[in-house]
Design a binder for these strands. Structure first.
Lengths: 335, 335
DNA sequence: AGAACACATAGATAATTATCTATGACTATA
DNA sequence: TATAGTCATAGATAATTATCTATGTGTTCT
């Protein structure tokens, strides 16, 4: 038995407490005995028999290596060492208790940490969900990661975040996705765009325009391309710009038109306007994406619940709310 | 099995940590794993096998109810809960360590408490031992009880103190006594006493004098009486006074003569002087008295050692030092 | 791809712990 | 001085824990 080695090391210096055998149970029992001054009373309170408690005390005494209580006028009173031990017990037990409370909070999701990875476009709406959530759960600490679709896919592959937001969830069996919010894509032009007032505007009218596009990995671009393909249209002139914000500014300064999430336009409409192109807005939706195998931190779960409770109210997204509700169901079942 | 009841209470609220099974050993192992980031390394360091450590972690995980570590790039890293648990471990272990140190100090006698019961007369010399001891051992807290012989005997009977000092130790098998310091009894008279210069002064000369005596229980009185008896002398006139100090003052004011410990006269010689009566000083000695069955607090043991080391030096009491050394031997053997 | 390493799991066993019941000893109190 | 109450001890047993060895499963480095 290996324990021999270590015990030996301890035994040599003789007077050390045999700390390795010390359990919180013993301390609990001991503390109660000191408080009640009676072994029998403690036994009753803890649903034990009196000899059991006596023996626990004996064992604790052996662990400490010193008498810890004595009987005095019918009461059990701690010796000097016993008093120090009692203080220790109180101290240790209350600390363990604090930890236990922390665990509770952690499990309820009211405390802790989770990280969420957003594709660029989503950063315009997620704050509207995260803000109120953080307000309501100040002890929860959220990390928000933002990147373009490819970067987010990389993070996703490496399991780096707890929740992801994609327009087009990666196809993967080990993944759960819930479309929680519609993300209408609209065509935007500069403020004084000549197409603005045109009724029944079609893509045909715009084919001479230059279109400013996100990089090929981008979901917005992908959706737009798919639509162009299905409509059999090819753009005459395009230019690639890496950020939505840069695109908006470029559009405002008259460099061309663009397809953007309507949320972006709503968020910062300066210098641009939505054009009433037929067939638009293109429908698309953001999805919450979580990995099946990854145990979702309770705080992340709580966030999803929170979102589920506010989509209908704040965003009139009944479908989204239902989808998130279903996601939560599945997660709960798998826990 | 009774454990069922309590477990049930816990199980109902579900997420609580199973604190009763938590041992310090587990925390030690866990803390080491977190520090080293490796199960195998910890196993080696603690002279265990790798599976043993793995299983300890598993058990700890079950106790906590949450995953506490995960493997990440070959290292074991704590989860969020695991980090909190690690902090807890450190905290608890260091507290237990402090207690362990306290125990050491207590056992070495360098810290703690003991009480010593003195008969009145001894209070004139014991401070000369206790003072330096306290100075050298500031963490030791000594209670000194003082009373007349009868009062001390009562305390002794009730096991109220750790060490007693008597001139005449109570006869009791369960008692160890070491005569540590001589206590010469001398006859004293007022400063201008006519007997002061007389050569070959005998009791016969003094039989007309009034003698001021302590109460019958007193050792001083007892010794004096025994001497009177053996010399076949009966005193003409006596008066009983309860305290040595009061007797000294009474003698100084000419109320009579008295037999007192020479230490008292040495301590406060004002108004009195020793008379050169033949046969005096009467020999007597103070004894340290301890009960065999009572476990002497280490601090008390340390005090006796201290005394043993200073008697020869400070009091030229070689015999006393030997007697205390012997006492310590016996105590050590009985521990 | 193969070797080396790190961890997990299974199965076995010895040691320890947690309990109980029964009984004995001591101590107050009626 | 009975009597009741409190604690200690003994003896028995079930449960848990601490270990090991052997083996399996992934990573990581070459």
């Amino acid at each position: 038995m290996c324990s021999v080695y270590i015990n030996c090391l301890c035994e040599l210096s003789k007077q050390f407490m045999k700390i390795r055998q010390l359990t919180f149970r013993l301390l609990q029992v001991y503390a109660d005995v000191v408080r009640s001054g009676s072994i029998t009373a403690t036994a009753n309170r803890l649903y034990l028999t009196q000899p059991t408690v006596s023996q626990q005390l004996k064992r604790l005494r052996e662990i400490v290596g010193e008498p810890i209580v004595r009987q005095e006028e019918g009461r059990i009173v701690p010796t000097e060492v016993g008093q120090a031990l009692y203080q220790l017990s109180q101290d240790l037990l209350s600390r363990a208790d604090v930890f236990s409370q922390y665990l509770d909070e952690y499990n309820s999701g009211g405390r802790g940490h989770f990280s969420i990875g957003l594709v660029n476009t989503a950063q315009y709406v997620l704050p509207r969900l995260l803000g109120p959530f953080s307000q309501a759960n100040p002890q929860v600490d959220v990390t928000v990661e933002v990147g373009n679709r490819q970067q987010m896919l990389n993070r996703f592959e490496r399991h780096e975040d707890d929740i992801y937001v994609f327009s087009h969830p990666p196809i993967d069996d080990a993944v759960l996705a819930a479309p929680f919010l519609s993300n209408p894509l609209v065509v935007v032009g500069p403020e004084q765009c000549r197409w603005a007032g045109v009724e029944g505007l079609t893509m045909d009218d715009l084919k001479e325009e230059r279109f400013l596009l996100r990089e090929p990995g981008s979901a917005t671009r992908h959706t737009f391309n798919a639509w162009l393909d299905s409509a059999g249209i090819e753009l005459r002139s395009t230019q690639q710009i890496a950020s939505n914000e840069a695109i908006r500014l470029a559009v405002a300064s008259g460099m061309g038109l663009a397809v953007l999430s309507r949320h972006i336009v709503a968020d910062s409409p300066k210098g641009v306007q939505e054009l009433p192109l037929q067939g638009f807005p293109l429908k698309s939706r953001w999805h919450f994406v979580v990995r099946r195998e990854r145990r979702l931190p309770p705080a992340a779960y709580r966030f999803l619940s929170f979102v589920q409770g506010s989509l209908a109210r704040e965003f009139e997204e009944l479908e989204g709310e239902a989808a998130v509700a279903e996601l939560l169901q599945v997660l709960k079942a798998e826990r």
